[in-house]
Design a binder for these strands. Structure first.
Length: 738
DNA sequence: AAGATAGTCGTTTTT
DNA sequence: CGACTATCTT
């Protein structure tokens, strides 16, 4: 106890108030870098050490697995003994745990399986087909989006508001069929986990009472990210006994698109008028300059709860801004900068490279590889989303649950064993007609001669394979079962045949699954190891599996960067249409959320922040020109140091694509953006600048639209009239200025 | 039935 | 550009 008292004494005044509060409901509004996680973990330790909560009576909810792991780690440092029995996890993870424990009360099969969004999308497509609704106008992804949106709001198919719109009626019809199929095959999607967990409380008073008895303290991190169901679930759980602490920051609400409701912060004060409010506004993370920039940007949003971060620290270095010719130039600049940081002795792990969308990572990676800078990507194509990993897991899922249709469809013919589209279609029809899973349909068809010779044999062999794996699993460790599945399924031979680099990587990844499974051979909270492993695979992206040892820089989206901090931060791609992203630009709420995302990005930096944008960017196969992001302009000029000064220019930025030289226009007006300064690439070639008209002996006349490289390696992109866009090395191309 | 090839299409963020 | 589909050839 004395230990924690001493530690708490080191916190600042409002932090201590939050940690020690004995209010029944506590709302902590915590700005970026104000010690939010620290307050949360200290409070948990405080509550336990002071006897206000038993370890197993403490429930802490986070949004990401990373955050949950981090919290556990920090608690281990604070508590004399490891936090045994505490409930720490994501909303989804905790919902899953509850449903596994109370599957009967939740009206689920004991071996229900969790679907990820890819499984879900396939299922939606299948239903659209089966209902005979396949139509170019019906976008399966929109349907998926719709279903998830309804579930986020806690609305089951039958309660979807009736609408006269033809589309809404269709959506509702598909949702109904989807719900029925999931129930029939024991499949649960992400939204369903939360919805069921909520219904578990509502429909089973004894179960609810049990947990209300068990939990004395519930704590929620990143509360601004809770959606309607999560909030409802919390409210029911807390009843009029359990104490609730929530921590959040309305300025960091970046998941509105996924149903998150910032309003929950106000809602909780309405629902519980006695809620104690503590604000944490002192920032301990960033320099004065970085903080000022962040404040200036977020100040452009209206409807904020109001909060101004301040720091007692130094102003620090100015923010760097690099205006790149194109995305390759941008990547090169960033990689060069990182290299010199490393040369100066910065740890790679103190450097982060952030971007708006995953698609941006490839070019950046290439530049890093070129300079042999070790990096690690979070997110992107996640480990458990890789094709070979999913295939392997599908075999295991079938072992765990024969009714797992998603897994069945995925691997019944992978590797190819002669069960083609026709056979599968027949199986689907039987399954639909008798309302069974695909597996049961096959069993039925085999008994009744519903499948013809070749396909019948192949399907029977497949069933036998799964059954044998199941039997074998009885007396071997999980990792051995994985190994056996790789061999017996034929996946190993399948990828062996490809024999290329890719195939080798695939086999390595399958081996990685074997390794990962070893962690689940013991200590699985009462679940059978296979079950525990599979649900973890669905609920956790598997980021933790990547090589943790090497000191490497971090690459990730701005979204995944939330909650983290780095000494050096690079934010790439600050261009209109990319950041803010074009998909969120047509509404003021969308734009405000992009701005909060920018705020999140800026506040990740402790000492140095480098922003960059590219004047032209190759995206979706064609060259695009975008203006610098409005967020750049929102940062006070005096805080920014332009690496390549922006001058008035003769060119303008077209807002859309342009493919030929015709659409490249010169104009006097508009935005200030550099290009005639010629920066690194063109400065030695005095007569050339972006926008220069040139003549090539072969291609004729054209306009220079971008340039990159240095010294002898300057490359220019020229839009030739009639010949299209070409990239030329300046030292070889015989270009003549007109 | 399976593989190869051509052609189309849509492109954010994540548990 | 690349993931997915439709169509072809074997």
């Amino acid at each position: 106890m004395s230990d924690i008292v001493q530690r708490v004494a080191k916190l600042n005044e409002p932090q201590q108030q939050a940690v020690k509060s004995d209010a029944r409901h506590l709302l902590v509004l915590a700005g970026a870098g104000s010690g939010k996680t620290s307050v949360l973990t200290h409070r948990m330790a405080w509550l336990i050490e002071s006897g206000q909560a038993a370890p197993h009576g403490t429930l802490a909810v986070t949004f990401t697995n990373k955050a949950a792991r981090e919290m556990r780690l920090r608690l281990e440092e604070l508590l004399p003994s490891s936090p045994h029995g505490m409930w720490i996890g994501t909303f989804h993870g905790i919902a899953h745990r509850l449903l596994k424990a109370h599957w009967r009360a939740a009206k689920l099969p004991e071996n229900f399986q969790v679907m990820d969004s890819d499984d879900q999308h396939r299922l939606v497509k299948r239903i659209i087909n089966e209902l005979g609704l396949k139509d170019d106008l019906l976008d399966s992804r929109k349907v998926q989006w719709f279903i998830n949106g309804q579930k986020d709001e806690g609305i089951r198919a039958q309660f979807v508001t009736n609408s006269y719109s033809q589309q809404d009626k269709l959506f509702k019809q598909i949702y109904m069929a989807y719900e029925a199929l999931c129930q029939r095959t024991g499949m649960v999607d992400f939204g369903e986990l939360l919805l069921r967990a909520h219904e578990l409380w509502l429909n089973n008073p004894p179960v609810l009472a049990f947990y209300q008895q068990q939990f004395q303290q519930v704590l929620v991190d990143e509360f601004q990210d809770t959606n309607s169901v999560q909030y409802a679930w919390l409210r029911v759980l807390c009843g009029d006994q359990v104490k609730l602490t929530v921590v959040g920051d309305d300025d960091q609400s970046i998941y509105g698109w996924r149903g998150a409701k910032v309003e929950n912060i106000q809602q909780i004060q309405q629902d519980y008028p006695d809620t104690e409010l503590v604000r944490l506004e002192q920032n301990y993370r960033s320099t004065g300059t970085i903080l000022e920039a962040a404040n200036a940007v977020i100040d452009n949003n209206t409807d904020r709860l109001g909060k101004e971060l301040w720091t007692a620290g130094d102003k620090g270095d100015p923010i760097k801004l690099y205006a790149a010719f194109n995305e390759i130039d941008e990547a090169r600049y960033i990689a060069d900068s990182i290299e010199s940081l490393l040369d100066q002795g910065t740890n790679a792990s103190d450097i982060a490279l952030l971007y708006r969308s995953n698609a941006q990572s490839r070019v950046l990676e290439e530049a890093l590889i070129h300079l042999q800078i070790p990096y690690r990507i979070y997110g992107g194509v996640r480990f458990y989303e890789r094709q070979e990993v999913r295939n392997l897991l599908s075999y295991l899922r079938l072992v765990a649950s024969r009714n797992d249709d998603a897994a069945f469809e995925r691997v019944v013919n992978v590797p190819a064993r002669g069960i083609g589209a026709k056979s599968l279609e027949n199986i689907r029809i039987v399954a639909r007609d008798q309302g069974s899973s695909l597996w049961d349909a096959v069993t039925f068809m085999l008994q009744n001669g519903g499948l013809k010779g070749k396909a019948a044999g192949a399907v029977a062999a497949f069933q036998l394979l799964i059954n044998e794996l199941d039997e074998a699993s009885e007396d071997m460790e999980l990792s051995e079962l994985c190994k056996l599945a790789i061999e017996a399924s034929g996946l190993e031979a399948h990828y062996d045949k490809e024999g290329k680099e890719k195939a080798i990587a695939r086999k390595e990844n399958m081996q990685e699954v074997v390794n990962a499974s070893k962690n689940y051979e013991t200590n699985t909270e009462g679940l059978p190891p296979l079950m525990a492993f599979l649900s973890e695979a669905s609920l956790d992206a598997g980021d933790a599996q990547a090589d943790v040892d090497e000191d490497s820089i971090h690459l990730m989206t701005l979204h995944s960067a939330k909650g983290l901090e780095f000494i050096q931060v690079f934010m790439a791609g600050l261009e209109e249409n990319l950041f803010p992203h074009r998909m969120s630009m047509d509404s003021s709420t969308g734009l405000a959320e992009e701005r909060r995302l920018c705020y999140v990005g800026i506040t990740r930096a402790r000492e140095n922040l480098t922003l960059s944008y590219a004047e032209t960017r190759r995206l979706f196969g064609s060259e695009t020109r975008n203006r610098p992001s409005r967020f750049i302009q929102e940062i006070p000029e005096e805080l920014v140091d332009s690496v390549r000064p922006t001058l008035k220019t003769t060119s303008t930025f077209a807002s859309g694509n342009y493919g030929s030289s015709n659409s490249y226009r010169s104009s006097k007006g508009g935005f200030s953006a550099r290009n005639s300064d010629m920066g690194n690439a063109l400065s030695e070639h005095e007569s050339l600048s972006l926008g220069s008209r040139v003549r090539h002996p072969m291609f004729g006349e054209g306009v220079i639209v971008s340039a990159s490289g240095q010294g002898a390696n300057v490359a220019v992109t020229v839009a030739f009239e009639g010949e299209g866009v070409k990239e030329l090395m300046l030292q070889y191309a015989k270009l003549e200025v007109i």
